[in-house]
């Protein structure tokens, strides 16, 4: 289990862009091909069609995967400059490699339940792969999942909940933000009040939209004090791409 996110860019030799992302027990490999020729039925006269395919680690994809695909697809269509590529297709394949185990239950292969905790990993992998494929985008995105767990009458927020936490969670929320601090995706499941959602929003905002500490200064100090709030996703995205660019431009 990785507590801090890990990512590698351009892992597949033949795809236009690819990324492997591992966080909180989930590992996802994403590949992006595009812009390529679209099939007649997918062709839009004025914009590119974004095709997302989610493939589960075990078993064939079902309604659950189709639902995840529709969530990711609608989010990514907002980010990618689809108007620049009329009649084209941008194909994103998200292959789930591992999901965290719950040692206390025997898992069934086909589960009808929703799988919100995987959405941040899928979205993050897709964004990294899109960057790797150099697909023009309006902004990048960061995502996180927050669960509201009630324990002995008090409610607490759990960022990146484990399967055990999810069993006890009252509600699970997935939030994604663009790099301009705009809310991109908000999906919730379970019982919750508006006040609880506000708390979740604040927690997710703190993880996804921490001001980038480009130079050592006040921001860095702030980071240390808020260490318990989870990882800094925006900084992570930035440093991953920076490291890749530095490695690619290094010659001799």
């Amino acid at each position: 289990m990785t507590v801090i996110p890990e990512a590698t860019l351009s892992v597949l030799p033949r795809a236009d862009g690819s990324a492997r992302y591992a966080h909180a027990g989930y590992t996802v490999t994403a590949s992006v091909n595009g812009p390529i020729e679209a099939q007649r039925r997918d062709e839009h006269a004025f914009e590119a069609h974004v095709d997302v395919v989610v493939r589960p680690a075990a078993g064939t994809g079902g309604t659950r995967e189709r639902h995840l695909e529709s969530i990711i697809e609608s989010s990514l269509t907002q980010l990618i400059l689809v108007k620049n590529f009329p009649r084209q297709l941008i194909q994103i394949v998200l292959q789930i490699e591992t999901t965290p185990d719950n040692d206390y239950v025997n898992t069934k292969l086909v589960q009808a339940s929703l799988n919100f905790p995987i959405v941040p990993s899928l979205l993050q992998a897709a964004v990294l792969a899109l960057i790797s494929a150099a697909v023009p985008m309006r902004a990048t995105a960061t995502a996180s999942v927050v669960a509201v767990v009630s324990q002995e009458g008090t409610k607490r927020l759990v960022v990146d909940p484990s399967p055990r936490d999810l069993e006890q969670a009252q509600s699970v929320h997935v939030l994604a933000f663009t790099s301009h601090d705009e809310l991109l995706l908000a999906e919730s499941e379970g019982d919750f009040t508006v006040k609880e959602w506000d708390g979740v929003y604040e927690a997710a905002l703190k993880i996804c939209c921490r001001p980038t500490s480009t130079k050592a200064g006040i921001d860095v100090m702030l980071d240390d004090s808020e260490d318990a709030a989870g990882s800094d996703m925006r900084q992570f995205l930035r440093s991953t791409v920076e490291a890749k660019v530095a490695a690619d431009l290094y010659w001799k």
Binding site: L12, R14, N33, T60, Q91, V93, Q95
Partner: peptide, 11 residues
């Protein structure tokens, strides 16, 4: 044994 070649291997 389930084998599926997706667009990840080649478009």
């Amino acid at each position: 044994i389930a084998t599926e070649l997706g667009p990840m291997a080649s478009p």
